[in-house]
Design a protein around this nucleic acid. Sequence first.
RNA 1: GGAGGGAUGACAGAGCGGCCGAAUGUACCGGUCUUGAAAACCGGCGUGGGCUUGCCCACCGUGGGUUCAAAUCCCACUCCCUCCGCCA
Length: 432
Amino acid sequence: MIDLAQLRREPDEVKAALARRGVPASNMDAILELDIEHRRLLHDAEALRAQVKDLSRQVGEARRAKADDVAEELQRTSRELGDREREASEASDAVAEKLRAELLMIPNLPSPDAPDGPDESANVEVRRWWLGMAEGAPFPTYEDYQRVAHWECARELGILDLESGAKLAGSMFPLYRGDGARLLRALSFLALDRHRDAYEEIRPPSVALTETMMSTGHLPKSADDMYEVPRDDLWLIPTAEVPLTSMRRGEILDESALPIRLTALTACFRREAGAAGRDTRGLLRVHEFDKVELFAYCTPEQAEAAHADILARAEGLLRELGLTYRVLDLCAGDLGTSSARTIDLEVYSPGVDKWLEVSSVSWFRDFQARRANVRFRSAQGTQFVHTVNGSALAWARIWAALVETYRQADGTVRLPDVLAPYFGDLTIRPRS
RNA sequence: GGAGGGAUGACAGAGCGGCCGAAUGUACCGGUCUUGAAAACCGGCGUGGGCUUGCCCACCGUGGGUUCAAAUCCCACUCCCUCCGCCA
């Protein structure tokens, strides 16, 4: 949620920032009007309330002084005022609710550092990396046997069974078999071990309450993109960001405890509403995938370094896996609702000849913390924390890129050495 | 799923219709004393909102209700503890 006080204080700056992501200034004006209306009504209600309280005090005094007739009279007056107060409060509450609803629909202010642009076409490619680049090797060329889509070569090897997944849960719910399932597990273990030095491992619930989804900004805006369990007021988490951000909901943290850095391996569920038909084959876009998430609560001063650390760790894993990737700085128009700045990592997958998004490293400033009400105490008083997070990494697409990149001429897959401690024999052969 | 007990400030814990935004202790911050520290003593010490910046309003798990007046009474719900049932 954006800061209403900031909108009041510097409306033009806020409008200008939000215009960069296509939010019309009229939305802000509507909010400012509601705010003025709300404060007027609130003031009326509070003045009446103060009178009722004062009269009630006098009733108590009169009763103790045995002046019952005086008390009766005071009660009558107070009862009338009470009725008016109730009306005034209801009017004020109604406006407050409208105001909050409007405010919840407003996305975060983009960071001044985020590039300009209306949509993904304007994202800025910051750099590319490939194996051997530091030693002067050119951008890799790929052999014909690497130009086979993962859904084909994986089926040959018997490590991916999309038909069975579809039978169980519908299309876009993949089922991994044998070494395919083991590879997924190896990747998660590798990542969690790499982050152990600084990030506490969390295994959160895979579902979250509506209230929890609100605090991360996924509701009300992204309701159609999530799976819902209405009977129990639960939603399947689209990312571990949801439980991690809400873990300290409503708390005031000690400044000395920051940054609090957390990592979690969870399944992630996405309905991908409206995405049908677009790059949906194989593992390109699925309803459920495993992901290791990195997350930090920090002070505003720590945020930049925390963001950089998560990005470095995500990139570090890609390099260890020897996968070609590029780094994109998302333009203002392509930022997620809650984000002020996002760096995406995309892996090049030769079999499908596409760049696949495998990580999104975001800085939310205090946008999520304001909704989730996570603060810290400092010398300057109590203030909202900043949150940052990023995937390191999302495995379905990494899995696809690995299988395609490391496919050998004979159809087997020779995995990178870094996986040896987790996978053993690094060659995936057809099951006999 | 059934029965009982509970939820109050950073923590512990009192209050159980009006003088309660809330005793007391601990922790924390400032001061006195001290070479320094500890102890002792003194003072301070929740969060948010409104405006006429001195006051007002809200918050005692959550939501409703009763009342002139609710932390306190009533109802529903959530969570925690104990016991019973069921169950990886």
